[in-house]
């Protein structure tokens, strides 16, 4: 087997391994088809094209109530465990508010802006975490499913709540304040001061991904429960 063919096979194998449950069959179909492509470069092009399957996230067909309860328990465990992100943001808020690193007006303003953004995010995360204590213990399936549904519906309606826009604006404040605090100017260096913007874009992409995934899970939950009724 040539190196090119070997690379193509590796890519196809990776795609099959990483494809979402509902897309796995398609990834396998693409991988199987590659065996019938004689030209090595064409096989490589074929395998590179198969990477597109990874963008199509699909849940496994025929979700059962047991699967849903398992997902609900996973979410409940994560809620119970909580996280320390609010402490990190609180620490940042205190740091920038009490110990500003620069007296230069724009940099100082940037640090204050970061402090405000971090403080709001810390408060929001703290109260969001406290909700986690109301998680059911997992013995009652109906209660678990009800919890799961409430959580998914809450996440789906995130953008409709005014508080969520405050959270998003706080992230914007942190990114903008960070850039100003570093550069001391509204015109940031594209490479030197890119990190806050990159992190903000990363956060927005992660948020969009989580939201889409939540909506898919909600649709799956509703479909399965309506089949049961």
């Amino acid at each position: 087997m040539s190196a090119i063919r070997g690379l193509a096979v590796r890519i196809s194998t990776l795609v099959v391994r990483c494809a979402s449950p509902g897309s796995k069959e398609w990834a396998e179909a693409l991988a199987a088809e590659m065996e019938f492509i004689e030209n090595d470069w064409s096989a490589l092009a074929w395998s590179l094209g198969s990477l597109r399957v990874l963008l199509h996230h699909r849940e496994a067909p025929g979700t059962s109530v047991e699967d849903l309860i398992r997902s609900a328990k996973k979410l409940a465990d994560a809620r119970r465990a909580g996280n320390i992100a609010w402490i990190i943001f609180l620490g940042q808020a205190i740091h920038f508010a009490i110990f500003p690193e620069s007296r230069e007006p724009l940099q100082h303003f940037g640090q204050e802006l970061t402090a405000v953004g971090c403080a709001v995010l810390s408060v929001w995360m703290f109260f969001d975490q406290r909700r986690g204590r109301k998680v059911p213990d997992g013995h009652d399936s109906a209660e678990m499913l009800s919890f799961y549904r409430t959580e998914l519906e809450r996440a789906a309606g995130f953008l409709r709540r005014p508080a969520s826009w405050i959270v998003l604006m706080s992230f914007g404040c942190v990114a903008m304040g960070w850039t100003l605090g570093e550069s001391g100017s509204f015109v940031a260096h594209p490479f030197k001061h890119a990190l806050p913007s990159v992190l903000l874009v990363g956060f927005v992409l992660l948020f969009m991904h989580q939201r889409r995934s939540g909506l898919r899970q909600l649709a799956r939950l509703r479909a399965t429960l309506s089949e049961q009724e």
């Binding site: 693409l30 092009a45 094209g49 597109r52």
Partner: peptide, 11 residues
């Protein structure tokens, strides 16, 4: 069509 275009359509 390339495989990355064809298969999403088939899916």
């Amino acid at each position: 069509l390339k495989s990355g275009t064809l298969y999403p359509i088939l899916m």
